[in-house]
Amino acid sequence: MSHILTLVAPAGDLDTPTLARVRAALAALGADAGTPDWLAEAEAADIPFAGLAPEQAIAAARATLGEAPVDAIATLSEGRRKRLLLADMDSTIVTTETLDEMAAFAGLKERIAGITRRSMNGELDFRAALIERVGMLKGLDESALQRTWEATEITPGAQALVATMRANGAHCAIVSGGFTWFTGRVAERLGFHAHYSNTLELADGKLAGTVAEPILDRDAKLATLKRLAAEHGLPLSAALTVGDGANDLAMLQAAGLGVAWRAKPVVAAAARARVDHADLRALLFAQGYRAAEIIPGA
């Protein structure tokens, strides 16, 4: 079969009748749909298919699934396992927007979070919005960074994603419009090989209200993907990218597997693959990893 449709749900929410219904929906559209193959019992399964475009298979699956908490990702059968992982950090590898959480210590969380939401949905220019938000935090004590970090939570499945891909030879990197103060710590905790982000400027133990140039934005994320692929001698088809915001969209669309993670509406609508229900291990299942092959991580 030329393609694989992977269905992934929170553990226990996927069953054999659901797989049968989705398989029947593919066949009704003229696809040659193979026997479902469990990757993780009651959580993830592959349905091989041919004779149908990936976007048609995904649409058929979503129509069949309705409101069920099941994600559907279609990939080529060949080259499923990616050798380069490039991940956004805020609201992807970690559960929050670190800049918004820092703003809480200045009493500006709701105001700054509103700008963040608009920026991540593509309504505002990312660079201008970043400069504006950081400028609003001028004079905030540097201790707010540490306090924000102490409250930051890693997204479920992130450790397994990095540990498993790294163990199987993939180069793993964070590329973020956030800040090196946080990306460095996240990279160290999870085992990313590298991290690329922006630098908050400090003066006398306080935020200076500025970001060092050059600012890492949407174009820089795509450029980082292309550079890393070239450095590792890989085609873009061998890359997996994941992110939630409009500044991630270019790298999501360029990679062999680009996954919109709990994405903003503009991103979810434009990405070829998205995960709305399962944890980040869904990105491993989409590559054909079985539960027994997944490394939980430290």
Rank of each mutant, 00 (worst) to 15 (best):
V186I: 15
T199W: 01
E150C: 07
A158K: 06
G139F: 08
L222D: 01
K138H: 14
V186P: 01
T164I: 11
R227N: 02
L124C: 14
A187T: 09
W181Y: 15
T224W: 03
I112S: 00
H232R: 12
G157D: 06
Y196A: 13
M165I: 10
D125R: 05
A229F: 04
L216E: 05
R166K: 15
S176N: 03
L202D: 01
R189I: 01
G233H: 06
L99P: 07
G114R: 13
G209V: 10
Q146S: 15
G184F: 09
P214M: 06
A212G: 05
E188C: 03
A113Q: 01
I115G: 07
A170T: 13
E110K: 15
N121D: 13
V94Q: 08
R117H: 11
T155Y: 11
T199I: 07
A128H: 09
R133F: 00
A128T: 11
E101V: 08
R111P: 12
I112E: 00
E123G: 03
F192R: 00
E142M: 12
A158S: 12
M165Y: 11
A208Q: 08
L130M: 08
K109D: 07
D141N: 15
A194H: 14
G184Q: 14
I154Y: 10
K206N: 04
I115M: 11
G177A: 11
D219A: 15
K109S: 09
R185T: 00
E97I: 05
D125I: 10
N198F: 04
S176L: 12
G135T: 02
V175N: 08
F182M: 14
E150I: 13
L225D: 05
I115P: 01
H195R: 02
D100L: 00
N168R: 13
L108R: 10
A229Y: 06
A151Y: 07
A128R: 12
E123Q: 14
G177V: 11
G169T: 12
A128F: 04
K226L: 01
G191V: 02
L222G: 11
G139V: 03
E150D: 14
G114I: 06
N121A: 03
S119K: 06
L99N: 11
E213G: 05
L137K: 06
L137D: 03
S176Q: 04
L124R: 14
T96D: 14
E132L: 12
S119I: 04
L140S: 06
K109T: 05
A106M: 06
T180K: 13
R147F: 08
I115F: 02
F192Q: 00
V175F: 13
A160F: 11
A113L: 04
L216G: 07
E213C: 01
E101Y: 00
T116P: 07
W149R: 09
M120L: 07
G107A: 10
